[in-house]
Simulated scan of single mutants.
Amino acid sequence: MRIALLLLCLIAFAFRPDKPAYRLYSPELKSQTYAKLLRQANGADVVLFGELHNNPICHWLELQLTKDLQLAKKGTLILGAEMFEADNQTALTDYVTGRTTSKELAAQARLWPNFDTDYMPIASFAREQKIPFVATNVPRKYATLVARKGLSALDTLSAEAKRQMAPLPLTVDLTLPGYKAMLEMMGAHGGNDTKTDAHKANPEQAERSPAANFARAQAIKDATMAYFILQNLKPGQTLLHFNGDYHSKNFEGIVWYLRQQRPDIKVVTLSSVEMADPDKPKVESPNLANFILAIPADMTKTY
């Protein structure tokens, strides 16, 4: 009998009574509730949901937050997303206002391969509820141009093309930790003139390096998303924005550009992190986001 009881106790310790799909934490890694996230989001000007693109928990929670904010905001919610580029705004607007079908949207816009499973539920809810949806990202061909030739290449574009991005000339601070990490990462992966030691020894050469242009390509995306967020945000509204986690974590990227234009803007950020054990959170930075979405590392992926 004692052996049987001991085995039962061991099983109880080995298997938890609950297996949550996610946990929410504060920047100090204190447990938070979804209700608190919703309250803070409801009072914000901009909510930046930093997602992991292939994580189903992110996409599910994005949809739930959209639904609950729409109920709370009573018609003053706006959506925005990295996944739609500025030159596809007409196609997106036509869909959410009911003028076109999903097939027409797919034909007219450059949709991500996982759009149907991961973003269509949000777009369909926006259509049902008549929620404005902003295509905030720079067209990818222009970000690619910056990555290949630098920011000066944008000067050659037409006036129409320049209307699809943040106003030029663009200020990029490559000393910001996020962009600096990109430089170091590319150096660590074998770029001849982008190694960390080379950056320290020859900063002028580093400024002209492929790694620097790669970081600037990230910056034109961040700046453009911030620009179109502010262009479409009116007093009393909340704009819920979906973007890859790197674009807003550590309050950099989009956040930095938002605050360059509106220092007093109220921004709430959420950073998604996969962890071996969400009940014992560990993060790379002590100031990652207002809310940290901790997800089991073995969570099923959407692609």
Rank of each mutant, 00 (worst) to 15 (best):
R148E: 12
R2V: 08
S248N: 14
A14E: 01
Q32E: 04
N192T: 09
D193V: 15
P203C: 04
P139G: 00
Y25H: 07
N42H: 15
T144E: 13
A109F: 07
L10V: 13
T302P: 02
A12M: 03
L92S: 11
K180D: 06
F84P: 10
A294E: 13
P139R: 01
A106V: 13
R16N: 05
D173N: 14
P263V: 05
K249D: 09
A4F: 15
T93L: 10
Q205K: 15
A226S: 00
P210H: 08
T66P: 12
F84R: 07
Q32G: 03
L145I: 08
A91V: 08
L8S: 06
T117P: 08
T171Y: 14
N202E: 09
L239S: 11
D118F: 01
M185F: 12
Q129C: 09
T269A: 04
K266P: 09
F214T: 13
H53T: 10
I57C: 07
S209P: 04
N213D: 14
T196L: 14
A166M: 06
S271K: 08
L48T: 03
L151F: 05
R39V: 13
S31A: 15
R140G: 03
T238M: 11
T238C: 07
N54Y: 12
R262T: 08
M120P: 04
M165F: 03
N232W: 02
A215T: 12
N290V: 01
V273Y: 00
L105P: 09
R148F: 02
K73W: 09
N232T: 00
A223Q: 02
R140K: 06
A109C: 15
V172N: 11
P56F: 04
T144N: 10
V134L: 02
I11W: 13
K195A: 13
P286K: 02
P177K: 04
A106G: 11
P20E: 10
R2C: 11
D155C: 09
G43D: 15
A126Y: 00
